[in-house]
Protein backbone atom coordinates (compact mmCIF):
# COMPACT_ATOMS: atom_id res chain seq x y z
CA UNK A 1 0.00 0.00 0.00
CA UNK A 2 3.07 2.25 0.04
CA UNK A 3 2.33 3.86 -3.32
CA UNK A 4 -1.38 4.05 -2.76
CA UNK A 5 -2.72 7.58 -2.51
CA UNK A 6 -5.97 6.21 -1.02
CA UNK A 7 -6.75 7.17 2.57
CA UNK A 8 -5.08 4.86 5.07
CA UNK A 9 -8.36 3.49 6.37
CA UNK A 10 -10.47 1.91 3.67
CA UNK A 11 -14.10 1.26 4.53
CA UNK A 12 -13.75 -2.23 3.16
CA UNK A 13 -10.52 -4.19 2.90
CA UNK A 14 -10.72 -7.68 1.44
CA UNK A 15 -7.64 -9.91 1.56
CA UNK A 16 -7.11 -13.29 -0.01
CA UNK A 17 -10.79 -14.08 0.19
CA UNK A 18 -11.91 -17.57 -0.76
CA UNK A 19 -15.23 -19.32 -1.05
CA UNK A 20 -15.37 -22.96 -1.99
CA UNK A 21 -18.68 -24.71 -2.49
CA UNK A 22 -18.67 -28.49 -2.21
CA UNK A 23 -19.29 -29.79 -5.71
CA UNK A 24 -20.95 -32.91 -4.37
CA UNK A 25 -22.55 -31.98 -1.08
CA UNK A 26 -23.25 -35.62 -0.27
CA UNK A 27 -19.62 -36.70 -0.58
CA UNK A 28 -18.77 -38.11 2.79
CA UNK A 29 -15.04 -37.56 2.89
CA UNK A 30 -13.13 -34.35 2.39
CA UNK A 31 -15.64 -31.60 1.84
CA UNK A 32 -13.44 -29.76 -0.59
CA UNK A 33 -12.39 -32.65 -2.71
CA UNK A 34 -13.89 -31.46 -5.94
CA UNK A 35 -15.03 -28.08 -4.69
CA UNK A 36 -16.26 -25.25 -6.86
CA UNK A 37 -13.66 -22.55 -6.32
CA UNK A 38 -16.17 -19.71 -6.76
CA UNK A 39 -13.93 -17.04 -5.28
CA UNK A 40 -10.32 -18.06 -5.05
CA UNK A 41 -8.05 -15.58 -3.34
CA UNK A 42 -9.10 -12.04 -4.15
CA UNK A 43 -8.02 -8.78 -2.50
CA UNK A 44 -9.36 -5.27 -2.92
CA UNK A 45 -10.07 -2.06 -1.03
CA UNK A 46 -13.02 0.31 -1.11
CA UNK A 47 -12.69 3.76 0.44
CA UNK A 48 -15.55 5.44 2.33
CA UNK A 49 -17.99 6.87 -0.21
CA UNK A 50 -16.16 5.17 -3.06
CA UNK A 51 -17.56 3.07 -5.88
CA UNK A 52 -15.98 -0.15 -7.01
CA UNK A 53 -17.41 -2.07 -9.92
CA UNK A 54 -16.85 -5.80 -10.13
CA UNK A 55 -17.20 -6.96 -13.70
CA UNK A 56 -17.23 -10.49 -15.01
CA UNK A 57 -19.14 -13.10 -16.94
CA UNK A 58 -21.12 -15.99 -15.53
CA UNK A 59 -19.00 -18.18 -13.30
CA UNK A 60 -16.46 -15.45 -12.60
CA UNK A 61 -17.37 -15.31 -8.91
CA UNK A 62 -18.61 -11.74 -8.92
CA UNK A 63 -21.95 -12.50 -7.30
CA UNK A 64 -20.36 -14.69 -4.63
CA UNK A 65 -17.93 -11.85 -3.88
CA UNK A 66 -20.86 -9.50 -3.25
CA UNK A 67 -22.61 -12.03 -1.07
CA UNK A 68 -19.45 -12.63 0.96
CA UNK A 69 -18.95 -8.93 1.57
CA UNK A 70 -22.59 -8.60 2.69
CA UNK A 71 -21.96 -11.72 4.77
CA UNK A 72 -24.80 -13.63 3.20
CA UNK A 73 -22.17 -16.31 2.73
CA UNK A 74 -19.49 -17.51 5.10
CA UNK A 75 -15.99 -17.19 3.61
CA UNK A 76 -13.93 -20.37 3.43
CA UNK A 77 -10.84 -18.35 4.25
CA UNK A 78 -9.42 -14.88 4.01
CA UNK A 79 -10.23 -11.57 5.59
CA UNK A 80 -12.99 -9.02 5.18
CA UNK A 81 -12.37 -5.90 7.24
CA UNK A 82 -15.27 -3.49 7.35
CA UNK A 83 -14.68 -0.12 9.04
CA UNK A 84 -11.77 -1.63 10.93
CA UNK A 85 -13.66 -4.70 12.15
CA UNK A 86 -12.91 -8.18 10.88
CA UNK A 87 -16.30 -9.50 9.75
CA UNK A 88 -15.20 -12.55 7.77
CA UNK A 89 -15.58 -14.94 10.69
CA UNK A 90 -18.38 -13.30 12.64
CA UNK A 91 -21.35 -15.44 13.59
CA UNK A 92 -24.87 -14.42 12.60
CA UNK A 93 -25.45 -13.01 16.04
CA UNK A 94 -22.20 -11.06 16.07
CA UNK A 95 -23.01 -9.77 12.60
CA UNK A 96 -26.40 -8.36 13.58
CA UNK A 97 -25.29 -4.91 14.82
CA UNK A 98 -23.31 -4.49 11.58
CA UNK A 99 -26.09 -5.55 9.19
CA UNK A 100 -27.53 -2.07 9.10
CA UNK A 101 -24.28 -0.69 7.76
CA UNK A 102 -24.01 -3.09 4.82
CA UNK A 103 -27.13 -3.26 2.68
CA UNK A 104 -27.87 -5.12 -0.49
CA UNK A 105 -29.81 -4.35 -3.67
CA UNK A 106 -30.57 -7.31 -5.93
CA UNK A 107 -31.25 -7.58 -9.62
CA UNK A 108 -34.85 -8.62 -9.42
CA UNK A 109 -37.11 -6.37 -7.36
CA UNK A 110 -39.99 -8.81 -7.98
CA UNK A 111 -38.05 -11.38 -6.01
CA UNK A 112 -36.69 -9.12 -3.30
CA UNK A 113 -39.96 -7.43 -2.34
CA UNK A 114 -42.72 -9.34 -0.59
CA UNK A 115 -45.76 -9.19 -2.92
CA UNK A 116 -48.15 -9.10 0.07
CA UNK A 117 -46.45 -6.20 1.79
CA UNK A 118 -47.21 -2.61 0.97
CA UNK A 119 -44.30 -0.35 0.07
CA UNK A 120 -44.77 1.34 3.44
CA UNK A 121 -44.43 -1.94 5.34
CA UNK A 122 -41.40 -2.98 3.29
CA UNK A 123 -39.66 0.25 4.23
CA UNK A 124 -40.82 0.42 7.85
CA UNK A 125 -39.74 -3.11 8.76
CA UNK A 126 -35.96 -2.51 8.63
CA UNK A 127 -36.39 0.83 10.42
CA UNK A 128 -38.18 -0.94 13.27
CA UNK A 129 -35.79 -3.90 13.28
CA UNK A 130 -32.82 -1.63 13.75
CA UNK A 131 -34.74 0.75 16.05
CA UNK A 132 -33.36 3.65 14.04
CA UNK A 133 -36.18 6.09 14.61
CA UNK A 134 -38.63 6.38 17.49
CA UNK A 135 -41.80 4.40 16.81
CA UNK A 136 -43.78 7.56 16.16
CA UNK A 137 -41.33 8.75 13.52
CA UNK A 138 -41.32 5.69 11.27
CA UNK A 139 -44.08 6.94 8.97
CA UNK A 140 -42.33 10.23 8.41
CA UNK A 141 -39.00 8.55 7.68
CA UNK A 142 -40.67 6.18 5.19
CA UNK A 143 -42.10 9.15 3.29
CA UNK A 144 -38.70 10.82 3.40
CA UNK A 145 -36.87 7.92 1.81
CA UNK A 146 -39.57 7.55 -0.83
CA UNK A 147 -38.99 11.15 -1.81
CA UNK A 148 -35.27 10.57 -1.73
CA UNK A 149 -35.57 7.94 -4.46
CA UNK A 150 -37.95 10.03 -6.51
CA UNK A 151 -41.21 8.27 -5.64
CA UNK A 152 -44.44 9.92 -4.63
CA UNK A 153 -44.86 9.45 -0.83
CA UNK A 154 -48.43 8.37 -1.58
CA UNK A 155 -46.95 5.11 -2.83
CA UNK A 156 -46.78 3.83 0.78
CA UNK A 157 -50.09 2.04 0.39
CA UNK A 158 -49.26 0.40 -2.92
CA UNK A 159 -48.21 -3.19 -3.43
CA UNK A 160 -45.20 -4.20 -5.56
CA UNK A 161 -47.57 -5.47 -8.28
CA UNK A 162 -49.00 -1.94 -8.65
CA UNK A 163 -45.58 -0.54 -9.54
CA UNK A 164 -43.51 -0.59 -12.72
CA UNK A 165 -40.14 -2.36 -12.76
CA UNK A 166 -38.28 0.91 -12.36
CA UNK A 167 -40.46 2.03 -9.46
CA UNK A 168 -40.01 -1.33 -7.78
CA UNK A 169 -36.25 -1.06 -8.04
CA UNK A 170 -36.50 2.44 -6.54
CA UNK A 171 -38.35 0.91 -3.58
CA UNK A 172 -35.57 -1.68 -3.19
CA UNK A 173 -33.00 1.14 -3.24
CA UNK A 174 -35.08 3.12 -0.73
CA UNK A 175 -35.25 0.12 1.57
CA UNK A 176 -31.48 -0.33 1.45
CA UNK A 177 -30.85 3.34 2.15
CA UNK A 178 -33.55 3.82 4.80
CA UNK A 179 -31.28 2.42 7.49
CA UNK A 180 -28.40 4.75 6.54
CA UNK A 181 -25.82 2.15 5.55
CA UNK A 182 -22.19 2.94 4.88
CA UNK A 183 -21.91 0.36 2.12
CA UNK A 184 -24.41 -0.82 -0.46
CA UNK A 185 -23.66 -4.01 -2.36
CA UNK A 186 -25.69 -3.82 -5.56
CA UNK A 187 -25.78 -6.99 -7.66
CA UNK A 188 -26.92 -6.18 -11.21
CA UNK A 189 -29.28 -3.49 -9.91
CA UNK A 190 -30.36 -2.23 -13.34
CA UNK A 191 -29.98 -5.33 -15.51
CA UNK A 192 -33.68 -6.22 -15.44
CA UNK A 193 -34.80 -2.71 -16.40
CA UNK A 194 -35.53 -1.23 -19.80
CA UNK A 195 -32.81 1.01 -21.17
CA UNK A 196 -34.76 4.24 -20.78
CA UNK A 197 -35.62 3.37 -17.19
CA UNK A 198 -32.20 1.88 -16.43
CA UNK A 199 -30.64 5.29 -17.04
CA UNK A 200 -33.02 6.84 -14.50
CA UNK A 201 -31.92 4.38 -11.82
CA UNK A 202 -28.20 4.75 -12.63
CA UNK A 203 -28.53 8.52 -12.26
CA UNK A 204 -30.50 8.10 -9.05
CA UNK A 205 -27.77 5.90 -7.56
CA UNK A 206 -25.18 8.49 -8.58
CA UNK A 207 -27.11 11.30 -6.89
CA UNK A 208 -27.68 9.29 -3.72
CA UNK A 209 -24.06 8.35 -3.51
CA UNK A 210 -23.06 12.00 -3.71
CA UNK A 211 -25.70 13.25 -1.30
CA UNK A 212 -25.31 10.54 1.31
CA UNK A 213 -21.67 9.57 0.93
CA UNK A 214 -22.55 5.88 0.79
CA UNK A 215 -19.96 3.54 -0.69
CA UNK A 216 -21.10 1.19 -3.46
CA UNK A 217 -19.86 -2.20 -4.53
CA UNK A 218 -21.53 -2.61 -7.91
CA UNK A 219 -21.57 -6.13 -9.31
CA UNK A 220 -22.39 -6.22 -13.00
CA UNK A 221 -21.83 -7.95 -16.31
CA UNK A 222 -22.42 -4.65 -18.07
CA UNK A 223 -19.18 -2.81 -18.76
CA UNK A 224 -21.00 0.28 -19.97
CA UNK A 225 -23.10 0.67 -16.82
CA UNK A 226 -20.05 0.18 -14.61
CA UNK A 227 -18.17 2.77 -16.61
CA UNK A 228 -20.89 5.31 -15.92
CA UNK A 229 -21.12 4.64 -12.22
CA UNK A 230 -17.81 3.50 -10.76
CA UNK A 231 -14.54 5.23 -9.89
CA UNK A 232 -12.67 1.95 -9.79
CA UNK A 233 -13.21 -1.36 -11.53
CA UNK A 234 -12.07 -4.93 -10.89
CA UNK A 235 -12.38 -7.54 -13.63
CA UNK A 236 -12.94 -11.12 -12.49
CA UNK A 237 -12.32 -14.36 -14.34
CA UNK A 238 -12.85 -17.80 -12.85
CA UNK A 239 -12.70 -16.73 -9.21
CA UNK A 240 -9.83 -14.30 -9.54
CA UNK A 241 -9.36 -10.60 -10.06
CA UNK A 242 -7.32 -10.39 -13.27
CA UNK A 243 -7.17 -6.63 -13.53
CA UNK A 244 -8.11 -3.70 -11.36
CA UNK A 245 -7.77 -0.02 -12.11
CA UNK A 246 -9.32 3.38 -11.90
CA UNK A 247 -12.09 3.74 -14.41
CA UNK A 248 -10.28 5.85 -16.98
CA UNK A 249 -7.18 3.65 -17.10
CA UNK A 250 -9.20 0.49 -17.38
CA UNK A 251 -11.43 1.67 -20.20
CA UNK A 252 -8.78 3.51 -22.18
CA UNK A 253 -5.90 1.11 -21.56
CA UNK A 254 -7.09 -2.37 -20.63
CA UNK A 255 -3.98 -4.49 -20.16
CA UNK A 256 -5.10 -8.00 -19.32
CA UNK A 257 -5.87 -10.05 -22.43
CA UNK A 258 -9.21 -11.10 -20.93
CA UNK A 259 -10.24 -7.49 -20.27
CA UNK A 260 -9.26 -6.62 -23.81
CA UNK A 261 -11.33 -9.46 -25.21
CA UNK A 262 -14.28 -8.55 -23.03
CA UNK A 263 -14.23 -4.92 -24.14
CA UNK A 264 -13.86 -5.81 -27.79
CA UNK A 265 -16.98 -7.99 -27.56
CA UNK A 266 -19.33 -5.34 -26.16
CA UNK A 267 -21.84 -4.39 -28.85
CA UNK A 268 -21.69 -0.67 -29.26
CA UNK A 269 -23.97 1.72 -31.07
CA UNK A 270 -21.14 4.10 -31.85
CA UNK A 271 -19.00 1.39 -33.36
CA UNK A 272 -21.91 -0.03 -35.31
CA UNK A 273 -22.86 3.26 -36.92
CA UNK A 274 -19.39 4.45 -37.73
CA UNK A 275 -18.67 1.14 -39.43
CA UNK A 276 -15.24 1.12 -37.79
CA UNK A 277 -15.61 -2.26 -36.17
CA UNK A 278 -12.97 -2.53 -33.56
CA UNK A 279 -10.86 -5.60 -34.07
CA UNK A 280 -12.76 -8.17 -32.08
CA UNK A 281 -10.74 -10.61 -30.07
CA UNK A 282 -12.28 -14.05 -30.33
CA UNK A 283 -11.68 -16.29 -27.37
CA UNK A 284 -11.28 -19.93 -28.37
CA UNK A 285 -13.06 -22.58 -26.34
CA UNK A 286 -15.11 -22.07 -23.23
CA UNK A 287 -14.37 -21.02 -19.67
CA UNK A 288 -12.82 -23.98 -17.81
CA UNK A 289 -14.63 -25.54 -14.90
CA UNK A 290 -14.15 -23.76 -11.57
CA UNK A 291 -13.89 -27.22 -10.00
CA UNK A 292 -10.57 -27.86 -11.71
CA UNK A 293 -9.17 -24.56 -12.93
CA UNK A 294 -6.10 -24.70 -15.21
CA UNK A 295 -2.68 -24.69 -13.60
CA UNK A 296 -0.81 -21.41 -13.56
CA UNK A 297 -2.80 -18.59 -15.12
CA UNK A 298 -6.47 -19.45 -15.30
CA UNK A 299 -6.98 -17.59 -18.52
CA UNK A 300 -4.14 -19.28 -20.38
CA UNK A 301 -6.34 -21.93 -22.05
CA UNK A 302 -8.06 -19.18 -24.02
CA UNK A 303 -5.26 -16.63 -24.21
CA UNK A 304 -3.49 -15.81 -27.46
CA UNK A 305 -0.42 -14.64 -25.59
CA UNK A 306 0.01 -17.76 -23.50
CA UNK A 307 3.55 -19.20 -23.21
CA UNK A 308 4.98 -22.06 -21.25
CA UNK A 309 5.41 -19.97 -18.10
CA UNK A 310 1.67 -19.33 -17.98
CA UNK A 311 0.95 -23.01 -17.35
CA UNK A 312 3.54 -23.20 -14.58
CA UNK A 313 3.32 -19.97 -12.63
CA UNK A 314 0.16 -18.35 -11.38
CA UNK A 315 0.70 -14.65 -12.15
CA UNK A 316 0.22 -12.31 -9.17
CA UNK A 317 -1.43 -8.91 -9.55
CA UNK A 318 1.39 -6.64 -10.67
CA UNK A 319 1.33 -2.94 -10.19
CA UNK A 320 1.56 -1.06 -13.48
CA UNK A 321 0.74 2.32 -12.01
CA UNK A 322 -0.33 3.09 -8.43
CA UNK A 323 -3.96 2.64 -9.51
CA UNK A 324 -3.63 -0.12 -12.08
CA UNK A 325 -2.81 -3.77 -11.39
CA UNK A 326 -2.79 -6.69 -13.77
CA UNK A 327 -2.36 -10.42 -13.20
CA UNK A 328 -0.48 -11.34 -16.37
CA UNK A 329 3.08 -12.50 -16.92
CA UNK A 330 3.37 -10.18 -19.85
CA UNK A 331 2.15 -7.14 -17.97
CA UNK A 332 5.89 -6.69 -17.32
CA UNK A 333 6.08 -5.37 -20.84
CA UNK A 334 4.30 -2.32 -19.53
CA UNK A 335 6.89 -1.56 -16.88
CA UNK A 336 5.36 -3.33 -13.93
CA UNK A 337 6.86 -3.75 -10.51
CA UNK A 338 5.56 -6.49 -8.22
CA UNK A 339 2.84 -5.26 -5.88
CA UNK A 340 3.39 -5.65 -2.18
CA UNK A 341 2.35 -8.97 -0.73
CA UNK A 342 -0.75 -7.68 0.90
CA UNK A 343 -2.41 -6.67 -2.34
CA UNK A 344 -1.43 -9.73 -4.29
CA UNK A 345 -3.66 -12.77 -4.35
CA UNK A 346 -2.16 -15.86 -2.79
CA UNK A 347 -1.18 -18.95 -4.69
CA UNK A 348 -3.67 -21.80 -4.70
CA UNK A 349 -3.03 -24.25 -1.91
Amino acid sequence: MTHDPAPPDPLLAVRDLRKLFPARPTARRSRFQGAVRAVDGISFDLRPGGTLGIVGESGSGKTTTGRLVARLEQPTSGSIRFAGTEIGALSRKEMRPLRRQIQMVFQDPYGSLNPRQTVGTALATPLRAHALVPAGGVGRRVREVLELVGLDPRHVDRYPADLSGGQRQRVAVARALAVEPRLVVADEPVSALDVSVQAQVVNLLQDLRRELGVAFLLISHDLAVVRHFCDDVAVMYLGRIVETADRDSLYTRPLHPYTQALMSAVPDVRRGTSGERLHRIRLPGEPPSPVSPPSGCRFRTRCWRAQEVCAQVDPPLLEITPTHRVACHFAGEFGAVPADREGAPGQPG
Binding site: V195, S196, A199, H228, R270
Partner: peptide, 11 residues
Amino acid sequence: GLLQSTPDLGA
Protein backbone atom coordinates in the same frame (compact mmCIF):
# COMPACT_ATOMS: atom_id res chain seq x y z
CA GLY B 1 -34.23 9.33 -26.16
CA LEU B 2 -33.38 5.65 -26.28
CA LEU B 3 -29.97 6.45 -27.76
CA GLN B 4 -29.37 9.18 -25.19
CA SER B 5 -30.08 6.82 -22.33
CA THR B 6 -27.93 3.93 -23.60
CA PRO B 7 -24.65 3.80 -21.70
CA ASP B 8 -21.65 3.05 -23.85
CA LEU B 9 -17.94 2.52 -23.54
CA GLY B 10 -16.82 5.55 -25.50
CA ALA B 11 -18.84 8.57 -24.42
